[in-house]
Design a binder for these strands. Sequence first.
DNA 1: TCTGGGGTCCTAGGACCC
DNA 2: TCTGGGGTCCTAGGACCC
Length: 420
Amino acid sequence: MTKIFALVDCNNFYASCERVFNPALQKRPVVVLSNNDGCIIARSNEAKALGIPMGAPYYQNKELMKKNGVVVFSSNYQFYGDMSLRVMDSLRLFVPDMEVYSIDEAFLRLDGFAHHDLFDMAVTIRTKLHQWTGIPTSLGIAPTKTLAKIANRYAKKNTQTGVFDMRDPQLQSHIMSNLPVEELWGISHRWGKKLRALGIQTALQLRDSDPKFIRRNFSLVGERIVHELRGLSCLDLEEVRPKKNIMSSKSFGKPITEQQQMEEALANYTARACEKLRGQHSKAQGISVFIKTNRFKQSEPQYYNAATLGFEHPTSDTAYILQAGKKLLNILYRKGYRYKKCGIMLLDIVPDHYHQDHLFVAQDTAKAEHLMKVLDLVNQSMGPGTVFHAAQGIKRDWQMRNDNRSPRYTTKWNELARVF
DNA sequence: TCTGGGGTCCTAGGACCC
DNA sequence: TCTGGGGTCCTAGGACCC
């Protein structure tokens, strides 16, 4: 039986979120910035039309935006994350087989609905999502994930309905013949250049290439794309799996020059990573820490260093991991640099019921685990950061900038939208 | 002044084993 | 002159994604 996939993608997701509780933004150009107000990571259609580039540094486009009355937001991940949950929960009401692919995308399997009019069904889903969450979406339908991605792009650009069904092979060929190869899912700018050098310019040409040849030059990943373009599904819906690595890293609001401050920042990132770790019911068996200076300031002395440490036993105890991080930082840190960023990665993650009996530590871990449970509970009910470790510091004047953050409308009682 | 953060998968090559 | 063959596991690095 042939499969049927749909890709649901939220249009300009972060910008659309900002609009939901602020209708005055409806026709205005809106832009959302990355952490630390560094780069532009979301644009409303009006902002795109002004030629504001994706991923570009904010400060380079400040003038252009000011001139055109663009409304600028710092990122508000608590809010976007919650809006994403609402969209995904709504989708689940329509379709049982679904994969949440990213914060703003989900793949669906529609095989079971093949006797319905899938176009109508997609339009209904889209309408309801908008009605229930305020978020506009696009829906592409096709026999493979890779083709569904194309269908979705097409739906966004070329349709009134926001829905496009690309199951027909002739239609596929026609659309692919006009699609530059680097716009395919899985083909980066780099691979695009390499493909073009080999005479492959369009998605259609890639589809009709020899899979073995593509494999030699672009590995299994490339070969799979060829098959997917031919309508042969190689990528199925994926289960939600616990993360294998958990990272937490951030640039500082201003350069750090004291080890004490770096320790504080690192402690905060560590606490965050450990929270995620416990949230997915896992333990880590090691930690890696890195610190670096600002690579864009080549006039300043540059420094990057990283180090890894294995734990004696799998753990999710923040206090224990904080100590390990501090140890590593002590090895890495050199005086005399202006540091811009540091980060921590939790490694070799295993389920938390994975239990290696350890004669001497059993007692301690039980106590620590209980403490962490209480800590998480308090922070979940009273708000993040209500209770924290002393190592995380209080002043935190290295913290990132987010001057234009909107209220956390849906996750903070005192930031609810008001209606007058 | 100012340039994000968090992931996954695949491959090649080395270590090690019989 | 000449020094096996095959397998597994692990890791680092490179590629991609949103």
